[in-house]
Design a protein around this nucleic acid. Structure first.
Lengths: 218, 218
DNA sequence: ATTCTTTTGTACCATTTTGAACAAAAATCC
DNA sequence: GGATTTTTGTTCAAAATGGTACAAAAGAAT
């Protein structure tokens, strides 16, 4: 039931960010606990993940879970936020840099496949897509996050295509919005197929085919 | 708790398919009950739909539900089968006829949007996509159905594009498999977005953009 | 050493959920 | 009419679930 046995880490000299909490020290690290919770939610979804499961996986007992993250719904939302932060961190650099279009897209899809296919208990897919499919969409706050996630991806892809068009990598007649939606569609389709255990090779072939259509064959 | 009050329908003269069942007659029609169950599962997914919900919606009490469809998992599977049969029935004609490519695809997407956006309690999305996202994929039988649904759609689209190519509606260099995957991707993306309550107009715009890329602008 | 603060861990509660048992009901067959 | 068959409707039981109360524990502040 204990997350780690290490004694409280000797505070680094001159680390002002840790002003010595007052009461009994936590037996868990909130970040790793949230990661475990995210793992569970990604595997089974909201309803099928019980607080007992979460308690076991995080090494925190129920009251601690409440104290740290609130009730199940709040924990789900925080897990989702964590997922999106991670995804943003992984893709952000590629979306910000200015490499040739095809190269950037290839990198994005490679990262996406890593995210969707990782996990010991089978591929985990995309949390945004899973949440959209779950009962959680009936919750307005959660639905807003899903919508936000979808449009954020659309916009990031649209930027890629616009830049490529400016640079002459794409025909002047290209519809960058439509292409961006196709790029997102491809993300969505591989997320779904990954969940159904389609092997990586096939997913990569689907991505390659989509890239050939969107960017012209290499 | 009763599905309908109508007395047992007077058997049509010369209808040999109804050999008069022996015991107490059913108070429900299996087909409409299964339809109600499907509605519930589509709204909330497997785990979040309880047998009580199903019992209330179908007008059957629990033991009858068991007798008719087996346990919850079996009922889910039968609902899924029903969903797929319905979808096949709705799209089959379009996939079988030989109208011009763009027209056929437009019809398919219109039907898909009808399916995904229908429902009083918010849009219901695509059951295949929802199931893929749910905990149900960890069940091998269900996962197999999902995979089957995905590849069936791929193949139907691939046939459309192959035929179009033979007819010269498409460039000889067109990669029909890649185009089919893009067509499926577009189905998947609108299913997901529908679930997130993106309005029909926007979904139609996404479809139009995808069609322009796949078939060439109209 | 004592007090105060925060977290932990156990125990508990109310509700929901799945599933099964079983007698009553409603029809057909003889 | 009586036996048989099938479904219904009530009821129960066992387990799981989300959430909370509360005393013990572990550290800092005084």
């Amino acid at each position: 039931m204990v997350q780690k046995n290490k004694p409280p880490p000797a505070a680094k000299i001159g680390a002002p960010a840790v002003p010595k909490r007052r009461g009994r020290p936590r037996a868990y690290e909130p970040d790793v606990a949230l990661g475990k919770a995210l793992d569970l939610f990604r595997r089974a979804g909201f309803a099928a993940t019980s607080l007992d499961d979460l308690s076991a996986a995080t090494g925190m007992n129920r009251p601690s879970l409440y104290g740290a993250f609130g009730d199940k719904r709040e924990l789900y939302i925080k897990s989702y936020r964590r997922y999106r932060d991670d995804a943003r961190a992984a893709m952000g650099a590629v979306f910000r840099d200015e490499a040739p279009l095809r190269q950037r897209l290839e990198r994005i899809y490679a990262i996406a496949l890593d995210i969707y296919l990782s996990g010991e208990a089978g591929p985990r897919g995309c949390f945004t897509v899973m949440t959209a499919g779950s009962e959680a969409v009936s919750d307005p706050a959660i639905r807003a996050m899903v919508l936000e996630g979808l449009t954020e991806l659309d916009k990031a892809f649209a930027n890629c295509f616009r830049l490529a068009k400016e640079r002459g990598e794409l025909a002047g007649s290209a519809d960058t919005t439509a292409l961006a939606h196709l790029a997102s569609s491809t993300i969505h389709t591989i997320a779904i197929r990954a969940r159904a255990c389609v092997p990586r090779k096939e997913l990569e072939a689907i991505v390659k085919g989509a890239l050939d259509v969107m960017c012209g064959p290499k």
